[in-house]
Write a protein that binds this DNA or RNA. Structure first.
Lengths: 347, 347
DNA sequence: CTGAAAGCGCTTACAG
DNA sequence: CTGAAAGCGCTTACAG
């Protein structure tokens, strides 16, 4: 049985009110008295009971953090950033993975209305009516990460995917004007895929060569799927002098490996670029030209935004847009001459 | 202001005691009364206040989960397994990443003595006196994951690393008797490295050819480090007909890429194997022969063990040992003839 | 089977 | 500057 506020009061010869004040409003207490109380606290190893405190204060300093079933390197970076910021701001993180197929976003509503967390960050990778409803039912401050849910009150942190993908397209179109570019996306409903694809289309259209629909393929963001698909298509791509723009690094890695397995040299005979700049981007040979997504910053910004909302419920809804960064490495062929070179282009 | 138990009682025309009983001991309440109460609960959308409840029950159904700074694919799999099991058992997970260099395990003691969590799982990747002290100071049920902390009371989930590494060594020694095997570890103090290395040494010694100390190298588990190291060493390895046993998949991938960049064929001219069987193992060409570590099962088992302890504080300290599985793919050369073949060997 | 009451460990007006 | 008291929303003996 841990020490209670009463034990401290007794030891310090004061009332529990005074102990409480030392804990919460130090300056209201006489310095000498405060000293005695602090000593007693130390001696007893006293820590206020979180439940009793929560009951009065109606806050727990715990934030919910819900992530969809994204792949490891992305997931862990976002959590890392969120965790670090949460700690700095005096909060803890209740993390839940939501796995789309299974119990869907039920977890979310469990966590979100658990009564225990002060606010919640939810990363969404696609929106359907079920998700929208669940989010609408959340009664506490909500930050949506990497998406927007119209009609539901929330702050949000988004990545400027359009601009990131546009920067990549500009790079590709500039270094090899007029050449074919093939787009490999995730699922058709995936929010990131939608944005990146839009930028792809816009860029080609603006360049006077609208994309053939047959150059757009919806896969599933996975290495193996991309590998298999590329194994079939790669000779056609090489013959037409194409560049492959994969909507994430993992698929880009699959394409590169498929090409290499088929005896094709990257970037000489085929150029491949990715998206995200996960650690994987530097685990391919050649290294991937890709678009850097600030993963840990996403987590950090979401937590920060949530904490601000917690401090001030009335502030207007806020949306933070994080920028990406084009990272030119070797897989696109633009710097093939400088072996080992890596260059971060301006945004 | 959400509905309280009093609101429910009023609406259902009963006392709050009865409402509480419906919530906690359904069978003690008359069916009709219970019906009225349940209706009232539904109508008001009532959910018991977690703090008030925690104050009485002294439990929160929240478990702390502390992971060191392990790489993404491993980290996320462990969390995934832990999360799923926690949910099934009616618990939530408070996740913290501990980052060895920075604030060390301070977080742990914060979380561990926060008063809010019912128990805690801590994954340790190395043990020093500071970590030992911190763990010793934890006042709530503790499960140590992937390690042991002598002198501190705790249950534990460990992986039989010795046996896993031994299986790999047997495989290598059987398929190419008498050939040189080079070991690439993480830091010298890393628990997994220690175990895997011991098995490596034992196997070679048993085979009558104790390893040369110059064949053991301590790196840091990272791709890039392994790549650079291999770039220097690879020709020597090829000349001596060596096989490289990397203590994780990521380093194995680095070695493979370094070899390929040097124009060396894997597995024909150099054989490389890894450890962990993360997704990365199937993102190399050739795919990695490796030792499968049950990552999500580790998380799941740790949570389960903790919950059992929570139910029964007096049960004897328990240690669950999870087995690994040798996964023979192409990088070891043993099944080079069967292109694309994958075989999981018996343990 | 049900209710009145005590109590969990805090915080915070309200007096003094 | 400090203390006595009310109250936060529950659970659980204790009566009946």
């Amino acid at each position: 049985m841990p020490a209670s506020i009463e034990d401290v009061a007794r030891l310090a010869n004061v009332s529990i009110s005074t102990v409480s004040r030392v804990l919460n409003h130090r300056d209201l207490v006489n310095a000498k008295t405060r000293g005695r109380v602090e000593e007693a606290i130390k001696e007893l190893g006293y820590r206020p009971n979180v439940f009793a405190r929560g009951l009065m204060l109606r806050k727990s300093n715990i934030l919910g953090f819900v992530l969809p079933d994204v792949h490891g390197e992305f997931y862990s970076e976002v959590i890392r950033g969120a965790n670090l910021t949460a700690r700095e701001l005096g909060y803890h993180l209740l993390v839940s993975s939501v796995n789309a197929d299974e119990d869907g976003y039920d977890v979310l509503s469990t966590v979100g209305n658990h009564g225990l967390i002060d606010g919640i960050v939810v990363m969404v990778s696609e929106i359907d009516s079920r998700i929208r409803e669940t989010l609408a039912s959340v009664q506490i401050p909500l930050v949506v990460l990497d998406g927007d849910v119209p009609g539901v009150k929330h702050d949000s942190v988004v990545i400027d995917q359009r601009r990131g993908a546009a920067a990549m397209m500009t790079h590709l179109l500039t270094s090899r004007p007029g050449k074919r570019i093939v787009f490999l996306g995730g699922h058709e409903t995936n929010l990131d895929t939608i944005d990146r694809l839009a930028a792809y289309r816009d860029a080609l259209t603006a360049a006077g060569a609208p994309p053939a629909e047959s150059d757009v393929h919806y896969l599933d963001y996975r290495y193996e799927t991309a590998y298999k698909f590329a194994a079939k298509e790669v000779h056609g791509w090489v013959a037409s002098g194409a560049t492959v723009f994969a909507a994430n690094d993992e698929m880009a890695a699959g394409v590169i490996d498929a090409a290499i397995s088929a005896g094709i040299s990257v970037p000489t005979d085929l150029r491949v670029v990715g998206y995200d700049d996960t650690r994987l981007a530097q685990m391919t040979r050649p290294h991937l030209t890709t678009v850097h997504v600030p993963m840990s910053e996403m987590g950090a910004a979401a937590v920060e935004l949530l904490c601000q909302r917690l401090k001030n419920a009335d502030r207007p809804e806020t949306k933070i847009t994080l920028q990406t960064e084009l990272v030119v490495r070797q897989s696109c062929g633009a710097v093939a001459s400088l072996a080992g070179a890596e260059r971060r282009a301006a945004k």
